[in-house]
Amino acid sequence: MQSSVGRMSRLIDDVLDFARGRLGGGFILERGAETNLKPALEQVIGELQTAYPDREIAAALRFDGVIDCDPARIAQMASNLIANALRHGAEDGPVIVDAHRSPDYFELSVSNSGEPIPPEIMAELFKPFVRASARSHQQGLGLGLYICAQIAKAHAGTLDVISTSEGTRFRFRMPLTL
């Protein structure tokens, strides 16, 4: 029951985010120059590892200090990308989470092995109500990647994807200074 309540809550949040993004002035961020992002990402990874105990999540959070961002929104993006990789990737392969900081930008990537995303879907992937696969047992509304793209945009960043027979990698990159 708790799992169902959590899933329904996420669906409602996704619909509200979609409405805010489409009808309002975009996503509202609570950026803070004193934000330590690493604990938020560690929490997301821990929660998903608990939800998927039989799957490997290999995380390399290779940055320290503060990053001027909205940590709740970046955590929301990470949660969505990692959960998608766990659901859609090869069950026998790890999901790899990598985050690092350079002098000019912060980058977060999530990779998995498995079947590549078909090219006809790749072109539409960040649009609302689009899914990478049409599995009948899938849950959700197809808003997650659209919301992730809007979070990236609100941070003056980008979200892209590369999907080949070797694997799929989503990469978020944002400038450290605006």
Rank of each mutant, 00 (worst) to 15 (best):
E34D: 15
E34T: 11
N36S: 10
N36M: 01
L37I: 07
L37Y: 02
K38R: 13
K38M: 02
P39C: 04
E42F: 07
E42T: 01
V44M: 09
V44N: 04
I45H: 06
G46W: 03
L48T: 07
A51N: 01
A51Q: 12
Y52G: 03
Y52H: 13
P53T: 10
P53I: 08
D54V: 10
R55C: 01
R55Q: 05
E56F: 02
E56D: 11
E56H: 10
I57F: 04
I57Y: 10
A58G: 08
A59D: 00
A59W: 08
A60R: 14
L61D: 05
L61Y: 01
R62S: 15
F63E: 01
G65K: 11
V66A: 15
V66E: 13
D68I: 03
C69H: 04
P71F: 09
P71W: 08
A72D: 14
A72N: 14
R73Y: 10
R73G: 08
R73N: 09
I74V: 15
I74L: 14
I74S: 00
Q76C: 04
Q76H: 14
M77I: 02
A78F: 00
A78Y: 03
S79E: 12
S79A: 07
S79T: 09
N80M: 13
N80K: 09
L81V: 02
L81C: 00
I82H: 09
A83M: 11
A85R: 05
A85K: 01
L86W: 09
A90I: 05
A90Y: 07
G93Y: 11
P94W: 06
P94M: 01
V97W: 03
V97Q: 07
D98E: 14
H100Y: 10
H100R: 12
R101T: 12
S102T: 15
S102G: 15
S102R: 07
P103N: 06
D104A: 13
F106L: 11
F106K: 05
E107V: 05
L108W: 01
S109V: 07
S109Y: 00
S111C: 05
N112Y: 02
N112C: 10
E115L: 15
E115I: 10
E115N: 10
P116H: 04
P116A: 12
P118G: 00
P118V: 13
P119L: 03
P119G: 05
E120R: 07
E120V: 00
M122E: 13
M122D: 02
A123Y: 05
P128C: 03
F129G: 05
F129Q: 06
R131G: 07
R131I: 01
A132R: 04
A132C: 13
S133W: 09
S133V: 02
S133G: 11
S133N: 15
A134T: 11
A134R: 14
A134Q: 14
R135A: 14
Q138A: 13
Q139I: 15
Q139K: 14
G142P: 06
L143N: 05
L143I: 11
L145R: 03
L145H: 04
I151P: 05
I151G: 01
I151M: 13
A152V: 02
A152P: 12
K153D: 13
H155Y: 07
H155I: 04
H155L: 04
A156S: 15
A156G: 10
G157Q: 00
G157Y: 06
D160T: 14
V161G: 03
I162Y: 06
T164F: 07
S165M: 11
T168V: 10
R169I: 15
F170A: 08
F170S: 03
F172Y: 13
F172H: 03
F172D: 01
R173P: 00
